[in-house]
Design a protein around this nucleic acid. Structure first.
Lengths: 366, 366
DNA sequence: CTGAAAGCGCTTACAG
DNA sequence: CTGAAAGCGCTTACAG
């Protein structure tokens, strides 16, 4: 079989795939109960008070050079590492931001995440990542977990079903920024211009001579799908073309989704000359479906993805796509939320919405 | 140009890609200083001591039903969420495991991660993910961050350059399990049988009639590359074939790496009839290189990947690969480390090494 | 059945 | 320049 049913599911077990355990216990480790060195240990060894150690180590006020030296030596000798939980509890700041996304695998989110991590890292923040698989219940659990003291802020590509909870979280003092999906206008966001993206793509294809342009779409409750669809519709209407769309009830970010929709589009529209896929893996499915029917790409049919992902460049037929500056979007979202977190409570920057332009990158599929 | 230089780099900026800021400040939020409800607040409202609230909420000892009801009502009214930092500080357990991997994007790690997350979730643990990009310095920073109170255990696909640090961390009471790469025999591990994988692949290709089989390899300091190479060598020697390998100084987990190595192999061995790629993205590069030379796959040349990743199924020419049970490996690693964490300190299970078998999945590229 | 107290590891006014 | 003390939010023996 070509692909298995669980392509994006949790239980990924290819048929005929077995595994064996070669559990070899090499040696039983004698358990020594080590005790991570604490400030107190350092203080005792350096013969000063814990408060002095704290000040010396954090450079938070003047400490006599000699004392400082003793303290540093003691800390080094004991391999002292501050306990971040205690620091956080005391200071009310965790220097950590939570990132909640539907998925990482084969999705634009893994590119965005690199931007978030880089920017956060530069500003001294760590990230805590949760994947929801677009399940509102999972999302809710993630959010509740994060809100309970793990993070100072949350960046989320939401399902749109926990808007109330997100606003509660924001109200309780944890910064929230929406990423990719602007579901709530009351919360800050960093997104791409999906409407223009859909419009530009259909206009481009028309310019290439296409007359019957199909759109593979997704859940229109989600802003990006809605935006692309709106842009497509506007373009189609401006150009005097017919609106042709398809969707499926499979996992939306999947090869199979694109494959099924493309087949449906081709069945119902024998003269179809272009397919617009919402995301790259759908585009892969569409390319495969067209190829199986003996259609040549791009001669017989053109394929474009509306969410450029790095895989598009790596194919036998590389894929034209509308690319969003994923890395920069990640950086922006991180910057925005950290600004929020660190702002003096009297000067919170307030809600902001950022929209990035997308760019057409021509490759071989059009 | 076909691909840009930063394919796997940090600065992903496709040429000609610009972005605009449409920063629209919709409304300035009046900052209310909310104060997350604490046990104390609940206690006051329910008119009992904090200790009773704690016992009631955690079901940790009998509490009078009436009292319990008052407490539940109060907690609900205040929207109480326990502060995990405080719990962790008090209990010495964080119910969180750190996961340190080279990358998530287009790599097997994102599949493994799903297994880790599922298993951890079932056992009440969260995960904290760090990516190192195989940079030992970044890895060191990640580890130091994690060890300082964030996690109870660390699952790592290591660079192999911080072995000393890892052992220190283990010694300091934080469980450590190696994943995918068994670099240190003193630390537990969950890996696939790379040696058999390389051997089986070359044997399979020979069975298909191939006589000149090239291997695209990587950093032999890393156990998986070393293992596959050893297996390949054993196979080649058993079969009386010539050893043909190639490597490049590009980012190892990249399309370009595979593309360059395939071209080198084909330049130096005009009769080459098979290419074994270490990972799927290399395989994509090899397919592309072969196709550009007018070679047909699989008729003129066969391509196989030694690390099956979901993308292999989604291509115009689907790719044969040796697949490891990534999801199960993730589950195992999580189970193993949580067993370790929760074991009574007198009965630590000790070091264990698990090796999973890989399975050949035939597709169209061979 | 429930309260008072100690303490997890830190930071930070407050004295001196 | 440095110490003593309070407190972040919780849990858990110890009493009663």
């Amino acid at each position: 079989m070509l692909f298995d049913e669980q392509e994006n599911g949790q239980k990924h077990l290819e048929i005929g795939l077995h595994f064996i355990y070669n559990a070899v216990v090499y040696k039983r480790l004698r358990k020594k109960v080590y005790h991570m060195a604490t400030l107190k240990d350092v203080a005792k060894l350096a013969n000063v008070d814990v408060s002095t150690v704290s000040r010396a180590l954090n450079n938070t006020s003047y400490v006599h050079p000699d004392t400082k030296e003793r303290i540093y030596a003691a800390a080094k000798e004991l391999g002292y590492h501050p306990n971040v939980m205690a620091q956080a509890l005391r200071q009310g700041k965790r220097h950590t931001i939570g990132v909640v996304v539907p998925r990482l695998h084969m999705a634009i989110f893994s590119e965005i995440l690199q931007g978030i991590e880089q920017q956060a890292g530069e500003l001294g923040y760590g990230t805590l990542i949760c994947t929801t698989n677009d399940n509102p219940k999972t999302e809710k659990e993630c959010l509740n977990r994060l809100r309970s003291g793990f993070v100072d802020g949350i960046i989320i590509a939401a399902t749109g079903r926990n808007g109330r909870l997100l606003k509660d979280i924001q109200a309780s003092g944890i910064a929230v920024t929406q990423l990719v999906r602007r579901q709530e206008l009351e919360l800050s966001s960093v997104v791409a211009d999906y409407e223009a993206c859909g419009h530009d793509a259909v206009t481009y294809l028309h310019g290439k001579g296409c007359k019957e342009i199909g759109l593979i779409t997704g859940d229109l409750h989600l802003a990006p799908y809605k935006g692309r669809y709106d842009g497509y519709r506007r373009g189609v209407s401006e150009l005097g073309l017919e609106e042709i769309t398809s969707e499926s009830n499979r996992e939306v970010n999947s090869f199979r989704y694109g494959y099924d929709c493309a087949n449906q589009l081709l069945d119902e529209n024998p003269d179809l000359d272009a397919i617009m896929a919402s995301v790259d893996v759908q585009g892969l499915g569409a390319i495969r479906a067209a190829t199986e029917r003996g259609l040549r790409i791009p001669e017989d049919i053109k394929v474009i993805s509306l969410t450029g992902h790095r895989v598009g460049r790596m194919l036998e037929t590389t894929m034209t796509s509308m690319e969003m500056p994923a890395f920069e979007m990640g950086r922006s979202a991180a910057k925005m939320i950290i600004d929020d977190i660190e702002a003096d409570s009297k000067h919170k920057p307030g809600r902001r919405h950022l929209t990035f332009a997308t760019t057409l990158v021509e490759r071989e599929s059009t």
